[in-house]
C-alpha cells in the first residue's frame, strides 16, 4: 500500500512540475513531446516549461509561470499556448495577449484562483492562440509575448525559448513521412496540391507501360535540369498538366511513387 501511495505521489509531483528550459537541448524537448495526428492536422504538444520572464520592474511580481505549447500543423495553422500565470495579488486581471504587435483576447481555460497565506496570489489559466507561422519564424530566436490588462498596456512579458520551439518542430519533422524535408515546405500543403498528386497518379495509371517508363525517365531527368516534355497520348498530356500543378515536394514524392508503380 505504501509503495502505491509513493508511486502515485511521484506521478503527481512529476506531472505538476514545469521544466526550466535553460540548458535543455531541442532534441530533449523533441523526445518528450507528444504527437497527435488528426484528420487534417498534426499536433505536437511539448512538456510544461517555465517561460523566460522578461517583465520589467513595474510593481508586478510573477510568482510562477508555466507554459505548454501545442504546435498545430495542418489546415488551421493555429497553435495554442496554455499559460498558468501566478502573480502577487494586485486586484487586476489580465485578459489580453500581444504577439508580434497583434493583440488578442485571452481565453480563460478555467476559473481564476485566489490563494492567500502570508502572501496573496492570483493564478490565471490562459489559452493563447499563436499563428504557426510565427512559431516557425521564432525557431532560432524564440517568441516574445506580453500579457496585459488592456490592449494598450504592456504588463507581463515572457519569452518561449528557441530550443523549446525547435524541439517541437524537430519532433514533427522526424515523425513525418518525407525525410530531410524542411518544415516550412511541409506545412504549406494544401487541398489543391493534394488534388494535383491525386490527379497525377490517376493519369499515370491510365498510361501504357511504355509511356509510364518514358514519363518516369523524363520526370527524373527534368528534376535536375529543364527538359522539353515528351510527345505522346492525350492521357500523357493530362498527366503532364497535373504534374506541373504539383509542388516541388509533391513532384519528388510522385517520382518515387511512379518508379514503384510501373506496369
Amino acid at each position: 500500500m505504501l509503495k502505491k501511495i509513493i508511486l502515485l505521489s511521484s506521478v503527481l509531483i512529476l506531472s505538476a512540475c514545469a521544466t526550466n528550459p535553460e540548458g535543455i537541448s531541442s532534441e530533449q524537448f523533441a523526445t518528450s513531446a507528444k504527437l497527435t495526428k488528426g484528420y487534417n492536422f498534426t499536433q505536437v504538444t511539448g512538456e510544461k516549461i517555465r517561460p523566460i520572464n522578461l517583465t520589467e520592474k513595474n510593481g508586478l511580481l510573477v510568482m510562477s509561470a508555466e507554459a505548454t505549447l501545442g504546435l498545430m500543423i495542418g489546415e488551421a495553422q493555429t497553435s495554442t499556448l496554455a499559460l498558468n500565470l501566478k502573480f502577487l495579488e494586485n486586484y487586476q486581471k489580465y485578459y489580453f495577449a500581444r504577439i508580434n504587435d497583434v493583440n488578442q483576447k485571452i481565453t480563460q481555460r478555467k476559473e481564476t484562483v485566489r490563494q492567500c497565506d502570508d502572501q496573496c496570489s492570483i493564478t490565471q489559466y490562459m489559452l493563447i492562440n499563436i499563428k504557426t507561422d510565427d512559431l516557425l519564424a521564432a525557431r532560432e530566436q524564440g517568441l516574445v509575448f506580453s500579457i496585459n490588462k488592456t490592449d494598450n498596456n504592456t504588463d507581463f512579458i515572457f519569452k518561449i525559448p528557441s530550443n523549446y520551439i525547435d524541439g517541437l518542430l524537430k519532433r514533427y519533422e522526424i515523425e513525418h513521412t518525407v525525410p530531410n524535408t524542411p518544415i516550412n515546405t511541409l506545412v504549406s500543403t494544401s487541398v489543391e496540391e493534394s488534388k494535383a498528386t491525386e490527379m497525377t497518379q490517376y493519369w499515370f495509371n491510365k498510361l501504357d507501360s511504355e509511356e509510364q517508363i518514358a514519363f518516369s525517365t523524363w520526370a527524373i531527368k527534368s528534376s535536375k535540369k529543364e527538359l522539353t516534355f515528351i510527345d505522346g497520348s492525350k492521357n500523357l498530356e493530362k498527366l503532364h498538366y497535373w504534374y506541373q500543378e504539383a509542388t516541388k515536394v509533391e513532384q519528388k514524392n510522385l517520382r518515387t511513387w511512379a518508379v514503384g508503380n510501373l506496369k
Binding site: 520592474k57 513595474n58 510593481g59 508586478l60 494586485n90 486586484y91
Partner: peptide, 9 residues
Amino acid sequence: EAGLPGGFS
C-alpha cells in the same frame, strides 16, 4: 494601492 516605477508600490 499604487504601483510606482522601479519596483516600488
